[in-house]
């Protein structure tokens, strides 16, 4: 197992590469989720501000 992580002496380079990718994937997913929640919250506030418009547009 230690041999696997050592990557023949290139462990630092290999794991820095894959580690950065993991960080970016997780980070992007979290930031997009936060953005969606914020957008939903703003949409809710907008609907509260103009309830007649929100309700009126739906059949």
């Amino acid at each position: 197992m230690a041999e696997f992580f050592a990557m023949g002496g290139y462990g630092w380079y290999v794991w820095m590469s894959y580690g950065a990718c993991a960080v970016v994937v997780v980070g992007e997913a979290l930031s997009v989720r936060a953005r969606r929640r914020r957008a939903l919250e703003d949409a809710r506030l907008a609907a509260v501000d103009a309830p007649s418009r929100g309700a009126g547009a739906m059949p």
């Binding site: 949409a43 907008a46 418009r53 929100g54 309700a55 547009a57 739906m58």
Partner: peptide, 10 residues
């Protein structure tokens, strides 16, 4: 589309 009716209805 914040102000649109379909968003408010979600």
């Amino acid at each position: 589309e914040r102000g649109a009716g379909w968003v408010a209805a979600l």
